[in-house]
Design a protein around this nucleic acid. Structure first.
Lengths: 214, 214
DNA sequence: GCCGAACCGTACCGTACAGTACGGCTTAGC
DNA sequence: GCTAAGCCGTACTGTACGGTACGGTTCGGC
């Protein structure tokens, strides 16, 4: 990768406003799908020259990487405060996580980006898959696990392995949704559905890991 | 698609031995991954001419479709006999399903094929994703659901919606495994792990849906 | 042994797309 | 107002790959 592209090598660097506009153009093209994502199409959509694309992002891969990071940087929600954890708060927290996670994986942007990352993971080189995982599955894990542990500390949950408990939570929430969407299944899922699914998943999770309140 | 390629248009047509060899060559190339799958590479690996490929499979897409179908045709296991269903048999049946499903989604072939299908689902045209779904997620569903219903008939399980119950089963078994593998996470998962995970998932499923044995 | 069909290997064509070069426009600094 | 930097638009290059054409070989039917 050329030295001039180093500006986006590290995730900490924030793209300039103009660069953000370019990345948004990439996102819109990705979400629209259909025709494959070409540098020409990006330049046209973003009203910039290809030369600029290459100067800023190095190559096509760098552009993709920057796009994935850019999208990821917008997803991170604020930390949850966990004090005074009673049963109702725990349930609400978990339901919020479930809902927001379902909203993410059901969004066209997430589906399209995951498709790119999955396809990319097949051809060795770069690490789009790793970035998506780090900002998706693992990021939500790191945010949910403290809540689970707080629930355990408050005597509301019982488990040995936090990671295992989270993976159960993840499975109960996600079920077959993500793979079906990735494979192109037209799974209708509006906000009401998501709310219902989230509540159902949390109820099941609590049935498995909840401690009977004394 | 040209008329001469109609031989593989319908899933019922079985490819000839030579054609099977070609499809196996495609599979081996897909699993190896790395460089993108080109018709030249297939012809070379299968020791056949590109002309033959196009005569048999119509175009690149037809070849991919035939490959996915060919792999799918090998996965279908025999039907499970469900009579005399006691708690132990039910548990064993479910564990078998869970194990075989985990073995499938953890296999390099499945991962590689799913990657192709996911990538394909982004660009409209053909239906690789649909084929994979039909022979994966939905096929296992159609095989598990009768077992669940037999369990309910025997008074061992309690649920209203068979589909919902199966989706819970699916989620408990799969958890984050498939998406992590698709995204290139090196998730170590040997036979022993699979057995343990399957048993764990079934135990959780029974905890949720099992009826206390009288 | 002869014929035709199927098929292999190779050469070939057209196109799409990554990456580069460059002329012209805009804007900032002085 | 002049210069230089940054960027847009467009034109260009190289190449990889999907798809086609064709001569040579094998093989089954007669």
């Amino acid at each position: 990768m050329s030295a001039s592209a180093a500006i986006l090598d590290t995730p900490s660097e924030t793209p300039s406003l103009r660069q953000q506009a370019v990345l948004d153009a990439v996102l819109s093209l990705i979400v629209e799908g259909g025709d494959p994502l070409t540098m020409d199409a990006v330049a046209r959509r973003a009203s910039c020259s290809k030369e600029t694309l290459y100067k800023w992002f190095g190559d096509r891969d760098g552009l993709l990487t920057a796009t994935v990071r850019w999208q990821a940087s917008r997803v991170h929600a604020g930390r949850t405060e966990i004090d005074a954890l009673d049963a109702a708060t725990l349930r609400k927290n978990l339901r919020d996580f479930a809902e927001s996670w379902l909203s993410v994986i059901a969004s066209p942007t997430s589906v399209a980006l995951n498709r790119i990352a999955v396809a990319h993971a097949g051809s060795r080189k770069s690490n789009l898959g790793a970035i998506v995982l780090a900002n998706g599955r693992f990021a939500i894990g790191e945010r949910v696990k403290p809540v689970l542990e707080a629930g355990r500390a408050a005597g509301l949950l019982a488990f040995d392995d936090t990671e295992a408990a989270f993976r159960t939570f993840f499975g109960l929430v996600g079920r077959d949704i993500q793979i079906r969407l990735l494979l192109g299944d037209a799974l209708p899922l509006d906000a009401a559905d998501i709310g219902r699914e989230a509540a159902h998943a949390v109820a099941q999770f609590l049935a498995l890991y909840g401690r009977a309140t004394p």
